[in-house]
Amino acid sequence: MARQLSPVGLEFIDTAPVRLVFARQLSAPPAAVYRGLAEDVTGWPAWFRAVTLCRPTAGGAGREVRLVGGGRFQETILATDPVERYAYRVDTANAPGLRALAEEWLLTPAGNGTRVQWSFAADGTAVLRALLKAARPGLGRSFQDAASRLDKRIAANSTRS
């Protein structure tokens, strides 16, 4: 059953009780990475294995996301700073114990590519907070795999253009 979460803003990403931050260097330029994150929303399942469905809602102001294992989220986009940042919060979720969740993708030019930093910020029951902290290594591997697959997808699409 989906439950309403706290309507947090961008500041929550820096102040959340659970903050998991991961980074990776991609060979793709920031503009291409931004397009893959923010503009090709329906393409997420092709590169982020945990995502089975991602589609824009509310005329692009939100997203519906479904995850492997049955997770379902309705999100509001918080920031779309082209070539720099893409952030969103979860408004409703079927995850027990979750009170608030926001994510941010920061893009920084680095050499001939992009440094991508993903921040996962959450609040919930004590049990959920402990589980999320324990899940850090798995979330990190999931991010590393997703970032690598996004980079390869961008490269493949640029050779077709």
Rank of each mutant, 00 (worst) to 15 (best):
F120C: 11
L131C: 07
P109T: 13
Y34P: 00
K152F: 01
A126Q: 09
A16G: 04
L26R: 05
L150I: 12
Q4F: 09
V65W: 02
T76C: 04
A146D: 02
N112M: 04
E103S: 13
G124D: 10
A126W: 08
C54Q: 09
P137C: 09
T114N: 02
R89G: 00
A130N: 04
R153L: 15
W105C: 08
L107H: 01
S119I: 15
G59F: 12
K152Q: 13
G9H: 10
P96H: 05
E11M: 06
T80F: 06
E64M: 12
T92P: 05
Q74H: 06
R63Y: 09
T92M: 07
N112R: 14
T108C: 05
N94Y: 12
F12A: 01
R115A: 09
A110F: 03
R89L: 08
T125H: 06
A50Y: 12
N94I: 12
G62H: 07
G138M: 14
N157M: 09
L101P: 01
E104G: 04
L98Y: 07
D91P: 04
G70A: 10
S158C: 07
T80I: 07
R136T: 06
G97Y: 08
G59P: 10
D151I: 11
A121T: 04
M1W: 09
A156P: 02
R66D: 03
R3D: 10
F143V: 07
V21D: 00
L106N: 03
T92Y: 03
P82H: 06
G124Y: 07
P30W: 11
G113T: 10
L132A: 05
P30G: 04
T52C: 07
P17H: 03
G60P: 08
Q117A: 11
L67E: 05
I77M: 08
E39L: 14
L128Y: 08
A23Y: 01
V83R: 14
L26D: 01
E103P: 06
V51K: 04
R49T: 12
V8G: 02
V127A: 14
P56G: 14
A147R: 06
G69I: 11
T76F: 01
V65I: 15
L106G: 05
P56W: 06
A61W: 03
D91M: 06
M1H: 10
A122G: 05
A58N: 15
